[in-house]
């Protein structure tokens, strides 16, 4: 006995409608794109914010912009470079150079945007955590902020500090927070001294 149209086409038609309906709804709801966040282009401009204040906040912003710039130079994403730097092992000269240039570029960017704090603010905060003796700290604190701000430039101090930093050693000690802080503090203190000396020699 011949089957009627329902017998020949009924089930295929129902199946087509069901499959098309399910897949259509899923694709419309973003079915093809439920994937992990893709890293942004490191060479695109990135707005960097921080919840920290003072030197910590400034350092965070410099590091975030610096890594972004370095990743752009190296042709990587910011995330890939961060994960790479978090791994133990020797850093290449290319990575160190890119990172140093990235940090310096970050200083210049914040300076252009007028977002660097005055040097007196940096000096005061650095003194709070410094291991200088009380007499030295009191002597420096006695210098008026206006005089410090007139004598020093924040960007100059930071650029000198970045040049002084042994980035290879710093990256090898990322797990040791005390050692990390000490290296940065030493570099900043040295940069302040050098900047002051240069300023004095200019004046003389």
């Amino acid at each position: 006995m011949k089957r009627d149209l329902r017998g020949v086409a009924g089930l295929p038609a129902v199946a087509l409608v069901l499959v098309a309906g399910v897949l259509g709804v899923q694709v419309a709801a973003g079915g093809g794109s439920f994937e992990p966040l893709k890293p942004a282009d490191a060479c695109a401009e990135r707005v960097v914010t921080t919840q920290s204040e003072g030197i910590e906040g400034l350092t965070e912003r410099l590091v975030l912009i610096g890594i972004n710039e370095a990743a752009c130079t190296l042709g990587l994403s910011r995330e890939a470079l961060t994960l790479e730097l978090a791994q133990p092992g020797e850093r290449t000269d290319e990575e160190i150079d890119a990172l140093r240039e990235g940090l310096k570029s970050a200083v210049r960017q914040l300076e252009e945007d007028g977002e660097l704090p005055p040097p007196s603010e940096l000096v005061n905060e650095a003194l709070d955590t410094s291991d200088m003796n009380g007499f030295q700290k009191a002597a420096i604190r006695a210098i008026p902020d206006a005089m410090i701000d007139a004598s020093l430039d924040t960007d100059d101090i930071l650029l000198r500090a970045i040049d002084d930093l042994d980035l290879r050693d710093l990256l090898a000690n990322l797990d040791n927070e005390d050692d990390l802080n000490k290296q940065i503090q030493d570099a900043v203190t040295q940069a302040v001294k050098d900047s002051l000396l240069d300023r004095l020699s200019d004046l003389l």
């Binding site: 992990p36 966040l37 942004a40 919840q51 350092t59 994403s77």
Partner: peptide, 15 residues
């Protein structure tokens, strides 16, 4: 890992 890194770097937390 890259997605996690991205979100941690941009998280509204202190450094």
């Amino acid at each position: 890992q890259e997605a996690i890194t991205s979100l941690v770097l941009d998280a509204p937390l202190t450094a």
